[in-house]
């Protein structure tokens, strides 16, 4: 069943469809939450909030406007960034910062890397370190192009070009692949 079909069933309060959706996306979304929040407990809370939001707002999904993945990851990223920004402890934020694009919690938490992970990882390795870093700052840290330029002390135009070129390169590397749903 496609993502669109699953979401359509969720709008009709189909619990089995919701479970299937969880099985399909929970782990990847958890990984995204963990990457943004750098805290397991927070990431678990965020994951629950995200799936409750999916349950409540499934009928808002419009396949004409975006793919199911875009919809799901937008919810997950927004929720996680909101939670990250609302943290009261500045110290927590400082400790959470990292320059390592693939930073994760302890090795014991890791599952065997999937083919997909290897595939994406290899594509990311085709980018320069600077390109990977600006993508990390914008996607996982939620910084705007202006904020990135300020943090790195580089001209805005440079940052724009760097982000643009990194995504254009990734797009060409991923070309020919079609995501489900």
């Amino acid at each position: 069943m496609t993502d669109v079909e699953l979401i359509s069933r969720i709008t009709r309060r189909d619990r089995a469809a919701f479970d299937a959706f969880y099985d399909r996306y929970a782990q990847i979304i958890f990984g995204l939450c963990l990457r943004i929040l750098r805290d397991r407990a927070e990431a678990e809370d965020a994951l629950q909030d995200i799936f409750v939001q999916i349950w409540k707002e499934a009928e808002r999904f419009d396949p004409a406007r975006a793919s199911a993945k875009t919809w799901i990851f937008t919810i997950a990223r927004s929720r996680s960034l909101d939670r990250y920004r609302s943290r009261k402890s500045v110290q927590q934020r400082v400790e959470a910062e990292t320059t390592d694009f693939a930073a994760v919690p302890g090795a014991g938490d890791l599952q065997q890397s999937s083919l997909m992970q290897q595939y994406v990882g290899r594509a990311l390795e085709q980018l320069s370190k600077d390109q990977r870093y600006v993508l990390e700052l914008s996607y996982y840290e939620g910084l705007t192009q202006e904020e990135i330029a300020e943090r790195l002390g580089e001209p805005l135009g440079t940052i724009k070009s760097r982000i643009r070129s990194s995504l254009i390169k990734l797009r060409s590397l991923f070309a020919g692949e079609r995501s489900d749903g």
């Binding site: 929970a26 782990q27 990847i28 979304i29 958890f30 990984g31 995204l32 963990l34 990457r35 397991r40 990431a43 975006a66 793919s67 993945k69 875009t70 990851f73 693939a102 994760v104 919690p105 014991g108 938490d109 890791l110 599952q111 890397s113 999937s114 997909m116 992970q117 595939y119 994406v120 990882g121 594509a123 990311l124 993508l135 996607y139 995504l167 990734l170 797009r171 991923f174 995501s179």
Partner: peptide
């Protein structure tokens, strides 16, 4: 957007 959607798949998969 589909390109950006691939980024989370490049992360290590933590145990749920």
């Amino acid at each position: 957007q589909e390109t950006v959607n691939r980024l989370p798949y490049g992360l290590a998969a933590p145990q749920l």
